[in-house]
Amino acid sequence: MKHMQLRILSALLLIAPAAVAQDDLGAIFGKDSVRRDPVIATFKSTRIINAQSNETLARGDLDFRVAHRFGDMGGADGGSATFFGIDNSTDIRIAFEYGITDRLTAGVSRAKGSGHFSQLYEVLGKFKLLQQTMDNRVPLAITLFGNAVVTSMKSSPDKEAVSYFNKFSSRMSYTAQAVVARKFGDRFSLALLPSYVHRNRVGYMDMNNLFALGVGGRLRFSKRVALVVDYFVPFRDQASKDYYKTLGIEYYNPLGIGVEIETGGHVFHLNFTNSTATLENQFIPETTTSWLQGQFRWGFNISRRFSLGH
């Protein structure tokens, strides 16, 4: 019996040093620590289609963006006469956006404008407040976006017109927005966009202050191709809707559907939207074109990024 115990003990003692000397050296570094790294590439670009994504530019990156929206594909202005809208362009936006830090992006753009005002200049800022982490300790990403837009169009001589500017501030409009996003797995990302648009000058019974909720998503088919969708519900008063209905103007919720193709430094979108405009200040409050009446259009977004930071 005693010998038995002795044998067990020696066996145990033999195992102990063997465990240290074994060849699996990886064991000495312990288990992989839980990864607190931020989730990357929730979206591939700073825009979903019209909507902002939570992404900002890396420090020193310059993003050259061109967005183009054609005319109505169907309805009265579409069809073969305009080659399904290709002959017309409702909005064109050219932008330079720059990553001041990895979290802060600033940009300027010029847009043709589609809505009450045209000839628009935009100054924008975007700040990454919160990043989703791989260990889910931070389950959401939050990015703040704001812009100020001024129109350089000539004032209308008609004092009743929306585009009559008795003072400079009448030319201004603003957007403030939060992008709350989450990447689910490696294929699907979703964003909610509580938004606020303020336009200094609006028509009778229109709203200077308009809140809206946007939702956007991206579903990756392959490493380079994804489906993108964005949709906004503006909270316009019933009284305002009713009044404009009597004038034959109906407001619709802007919906965009697109295919996103990414190749190296380029991100290319081919999309369809019912909204004619590219800027939040217009497509959220001033979309009066409807998918159901053929008033949707081809559009594309092109993003080309340059690394200037070194």
Binding site: I40, A58, R59, D61, G264, G265, S307, H310
Partner: peptide, 8 residues
Amino acid sequence: KKKLMQEH
């Protein structure tokens, strides 16, 4: 050096 490259 290029963060976009790092992402890719």
